[in-house]
Computed example of a mutant assay.
Amino acid sequence: MKVRFEQTNFNPDEVKTLMKCTYYSQWKEINSGTDLKYLMEEWPFLFTEIGMTVHFQELTGVSLKDTFLNSLEKKGKRLLDFMRTTCADKSKRVLQEVTKLKILRGQLDGCSEDVKDMVLLLLCYFDEKEESLFHYVEETCLAKEIQMERLPLTPCIVVCGTTCYASRLFMLSIDCKIVNDQIPNFIFAICLMFRSYYCLNIHYPVALGTTLEFLQRCFFNINPEKGTKVETKKNKKQLSVNPRVLTLIADLSDHEWRETC
Rank of each mutant, 00 (worst) to 15 (best):
K116A: 08
P152C: 12
Q147R: 10
I146Y: 04
C160P: 00
E149Y: 10
E128G: 01
K129G: 07
Q147H: 12
K116N: 05
T162Y: 04
K144W: 02
L172R: 02
G110F: 07
T99I: 10
V137E: 13
P152I: 05
R93Q: 12
E138M: 10
E149W: 04
L120W: 01
C111T: 15
E149K: 14
I146A: 05
C160S: 12
M83N: 05
I103Q: 12
E113I: 13
C87Q: 11
T140Y: 08
F126T: 08
F126D: 05
L104C: 11
K102P: 01
T86M: 09
I157G: 04
E131L: 10
C87W: 01
L142G: 06
S173G: 08
R84A: 06
L123H: 03
A166N: 12
S173N: 05
E139W: 03
S167Q: 05
M148L: 14
L101K: 01
D175N: 15
F170T: 02
K100A: 13
Y125V: 06
D109Q: 15
C111Y: 03
Q96P: 00
G161N: 07
V115C: 07
E149I: 09
E113R: 08
Y136A: 08
G161D: 07
L121W: 03
M148F: 10
E139Q: 13
P152Q: 10
V158N: 08
T85V: 11
R93L: 09
L172G: 03
L120I: 13
T86W: 10
I174T: 05
L133W: 01
L151G: 07
G110R: 06
D127T: 13
Y165N: 05
T85A: 10
H135W: 08
E97Y: 01
D109E: 15
S132I: 00
L122T: 01
V94L: 04
D89N: 15
C111E: 14
R150E: 14
T85Y: 04
L122V: 10
G110A: 11
I103M: 11
